[in-house]
């Protein structure tokens, strides 16, 4: 694992990619911080960090697009498979390198609250807990991006897919407001999800019948729930989306709350995506 980690890290910092990423992140947080904290004379670094959240839409695709797609494209994945390394070690090594690249600008950012505190009263605890939230959210989004990079061979497709996913995640709570809070509206929304799930299964297994069966079974469960628990069905979809919203949980940190369930949530997203990533890489050997 350490060998892959070292290699990835070297590649990020020899290729300017890491430096450009760090510089960009620092630039945006710097702008936000100077606007809110220095120009606006507002002592809370967490609110400027919360405003910086959208940055992940741009930086996650840039950072993760090549991490596994490029290996497949250059056929260097054959080397990784033939070396005495576990796939999980390869994936973990790469992810840790990704996280390290992300942590470098965050470490620099950690000085901002201290600088601010030189000029007035700053709640360091809430500032640093927001930075922790920022790191956790970044880690979760990077894990999602890495998984997407593992399903395709092309960096461009990986980047576009990752950007699309990041956008969907970013707008998730906005989307949830669009869905009527009635039981019928929820049923409709869940049905669309069932069809999508069926399509994804179809694409992944290349078998129409397996996909159709998966879709129909999921739809049947939804309809069953709809008729039996109609009352609690109302507004359920919006609730689920709200619960799954990656960004909303981060904004909670910015309001000064250290939400342990958010920590658990982010960690589970990371573990789940890395698990999917390992499976997707393993699957390549079987096709």
């Amino acid at each position: 694992m350490s060998s892959v980690y070292r290699k990835e890290l070297r590649s990020y910092f020899c290729n300017m990619q890491g430096a450009v990423f760090a510089g960009f992140l620092l630039l945006i947080t710097g702008i936000m911080s100077s606007l809110y904290n220095f120009k606006g004379l507002y002592p809370s670094f967490e609110s400027s960090l919360a405003e910086t959240g959208f940055i992940f839409l741009l930086i996650v695709p840039v950072l993760t697009m090549k991490i596994l797609a490029e290996e497949r494209h250059q056929r260097t994945d054959q080397l990784l498979y033939s070396l005495p390394l576990k796939v999980s070690a390869v994936v973990l090594g790469k992810y840790l390198a990704l996280l390290t690249v992300f942590l470098v600008p965050v470490a620099i950012m950690s000085f901002y609250p201290l600088i601010l505190s030189m000029y007035g009263e700053v709640s360091l605890v809430s500032a640093y807990s927001t930075i922790v939230g920022f790191v956790l959210m970044g880690g979760a989004l990077l894990a999602i991006g890495m998984f997407i990079s593992s399903v395709t061979e092309s960096q461009v497709i990986a980047a576009v897919l990752t950007f699309g996913s990041m956008l969907a995640i970013y707008l998730m709570s906005a989307i949830s407001n669009l869905i009527p809070a009635t039981a019928q509206g929820t049923l409709g929304a869940f049905s669309v999800c069932c069809v999508l799930a069926g399509l994804i299964v179809w694409v992944m297994t290349k078998d129409v019948w397996v996909g159709a069966t998966a879709g129909i079974v999921l739809e049947a469960i939804t309809v069953f729930c709809y008729f039996n628990f109609t009352e609690s069905f109302a507004g359920l979809f919006a609730k689920v989306l709200d619960k799954l919203s990656v960004f909303d949980r981060f904004y909670l940190f910015a309001t000064g709350m250290f939400d342990l369930s958010a920590v658990v949530y982010y960690l589970s997203v990371i573990v789940f995506c890395l698990f999917l990533c390992v499976q997707s890489v393993e699957k390549k050997r079987y096709s």
Partner: peptide
Amino acid sequence: PEIPPLYTDMTPAEYLDFVGRA
């Protein structure tokens, strides 16, 4: 393998260092 699996943005020394460590 048929197509040498090389990381083209590395030097041979770095590449061999990575493979050796792995």
